[in-house]
Design a protein around this nucleic acid. Structure first.
Lengths: 151, 151
DNA sequence: ACTGAAATTTTTAGAAG
DNA sequence: CTTCTAAAAATTTCAGT
């Protein structure tokens, strides 16, 4: 790893872009008190350093036809098998996030599907692709999600 | 509301913006095969309908000083108490997402903190604010996160 | 590393088919 | 929806401090 903690100015820029990923350099410049060029430079550097991993539109699951969210915990069927689960799972597009976790289970997946039947099929594919047992927690509602980090 | 399932063109636009939230209208127009005006119209409509909830930069937790991610399951101390947990928790900035879930526990939180000590303090604040018991699952690594949805 | 300015591209709105 | 127009705004580069 290269650098220490973020400078306050980079922090401010990152915070603004986390809150609104389409904020213009002009807008950012005013908010953080730098010239447009300076902000531009810093943003490009933040992107190159990997501090900013990318930009994304946040979509409403209900409105895009994926109203069912679930958390799926994974337990390896064969504890001696090599741990290449993420690789085995990454081709499954319904899996939005994959976390390796400490605890009884090895991984937790966040998934989105159109329906209970879609979830059933997804579970089958996950078990088959990764040779795991699954424990599913259905999300009933999402009071909030993906809020900007503290910084 | 005239909310049917998303038209294929809106789907394509939403998919592109989920993959890169800063894509220009010019760029989008080429990719989905419409004029810039038409794309502009559709994007604005998607934003207004709430299909697109917003745009955000995705930041690297390690590089912004929040290397520790955890999933926290919540169980109410008093099962008879009114269910206003999200409201009681939303002021805590370390909580990125809050899911109401079916199962043994009532909520699952995704949080980011600087350190184990930060997590300890966060847990104390969550228990105090919401009058809940917590069960914490520490995230060891994140093979992938926040991938674009299927559509 | 920042400022200021210039050149280019994009955004945004509207008119007309 | 398309194309066209046009002004305003943003992006991007670069010389100068």
């Amino acid at each position: 790893m290269t650098d220490g903690p973020l400078e306050p100015l980079d922090q401010a820029i990152a915070r603004e872009l986390a809150a609104d990923g389409r904020r213009s350099f002009t807008d950012l410049a005013e908010r953080v008190g730098l010239s447009v060029s300076a902000v531009h430079q810093r943003v490009k550097r933040l992107e190159q350093r990997g501090v900013i991993r990318g930009y994304t539109a946040r979509l409403d699951g209900e409105l895009i036809g994926l109203p069912l969210t679930a958390l799926i915990s994974l337990t390896p069927n064969d504890p001696a098998a090599p741990d290449d689960y993420p690789q085995r799972l990454q081709h499954i597009a319904e899996i939005e996030s994959c976390y390796s976790v400490a605890g009884d289970e090895s991984y937790v997946l966040l998934v989105r599907v159109p329906s209970p039947l879609g979830l059933e099929d997804l579970l089958r594919r996950i078990r088959e692709a990764a040779k795991v047992s699954t424990r599913t927690t259905v999300v009933l509602s999402t009071p909030f999600e993906g809020r900007a980090p503290l910084l």
